[in-house]
């Protein structure tokens, strides 16, 4: 109770400093939040594209229906395969006429259908990395009735490179801003300790226990971190609402998963606590340690 009272008293005593600290921490974290929002949406977009990645095996014209059906069943049973779809020669031609309008005349005048039948394999989530896709294409190509298996190798690799770059940037920026937030909290708590230097000195002289002195500062650090985290969450939510309305190019944004937001706010509070612990240990602890 005293720790709560003291932490609140500290907020009341230096409201400007506290507001500045929370604002600065909030600002650091809102950048993290905005980046998280962008990363999440890039991730979502990549996921959408990823879901479209498929391995296509073009069949020889003399492929027997029985052996195709047997292969279909075998392929469907593979753990990495989500679905197998058979596209007949007629269906392929129909689709070409529909999708490739500029060649509609060419396709319209054909007397013999030159397009092969094909098997389209969709892969399960977690099996869409270039290596897995390539391995699956190899399996498909190994069937004697398959003339050729394609999967847009270059495209898949680029997609994954983009995702890796996004993850690396997220880690670097996230780590950088988290460090800024920690330094701010360390400084805030240090200033709070210095502002109460006389009180702390008297507490130490009359025999206060270390924990008694430290608890309000630890609580203050945690509450500052928590408030900064909530402020950042609010600002990120505002950006989420305002951006699509102001910039029509952004059609829609997906909001962050609840687990991310809860973890972000909890991490902000934990960072505040750890930063305060570091500061308190340095500033208060030395009066009890050997020197």
């Amino acid at each position: 109770m005293r720790a709560v009272r003291e932490a609140l008293a500290s907020f009341r005593r230096t409201p400007l400093l506290c507001v500045l600290s929370i604002g600065a921490i909030g600002l650091s974290l809102v950048i993290l939040g905005l980046f998280g929002l962008v990363a999440h949406n890039i991730g979502g977009a990549i996921g959408d594209v990823e879901r479209r990645v498929e391995v296509v095996g073009y069949l020889l014209d003399d492929a027997g229906p029985e052996e195709v059906r047997a292969a279909w069943r075998e392929l469907e049973a593979l753990p990495e395969v989500e679905s197998v779809r058979y596209v007949s020669k007629d269906e392929a031609l129909e689709r070409a006429r529909r999708d490739l309008v500029e060649f509609s005349n060419v396709y319209g005048e054909l007397r013999v259908n030159p397009l092969p039948a094909s098997l389209h394999l969709r892969l399960r989530e977690g099996f869409r990395a270039p290596e897995t896709v390539s391995e699956t294409a190899g399996l498909l190509a190994a069937y004697p009735f398959i003339e050729e298996a394609r999967f847009g190798e270059e495209w898949v690799e680029r997609l994954f490179a983009l995702r890796s770059a996004a993850a690396a940037t997220a880690l670097a920026l996230g780590g950088g801003f988290a460090l800024v937030a920690v330094l701010l909290i360390v400084t805030t708590v240090r200033m709070a300790i210095l502002a109460r230097g006389e009180e702390i000195e008297i507490m130490q002289i009359v025999g206060a226990r270390e924990g008694y002195i430290q608890r309000p500062f630890l609580l203050e650090g945690a509450v500052t971190g928590l408030a900064g985290g909530l402020l950042a969450l609010g600002a990120t939510r505002l950006a989420y609402v305002v951006f699509p309305a102001r910039f029509p190019a952004i059609e829609s944004l997906a909001w962050l998963p609840h687990l991310w937001t809860a973890a972000g706010v909890a991490a902000a509070a934990a960072l505040g606590l750890l930063a305060a612990a570091f500061s308190v240990h340095r500033e208060v602890g030395r009066a009890y340690g050997p020197s």
Partner: peptide, 10 residues
Amino acid sequence: RRRDIPALRR
């Protein structure tokens, strides 16, 4: 011990 110092100071 570090934790005994408050008792001493009292």
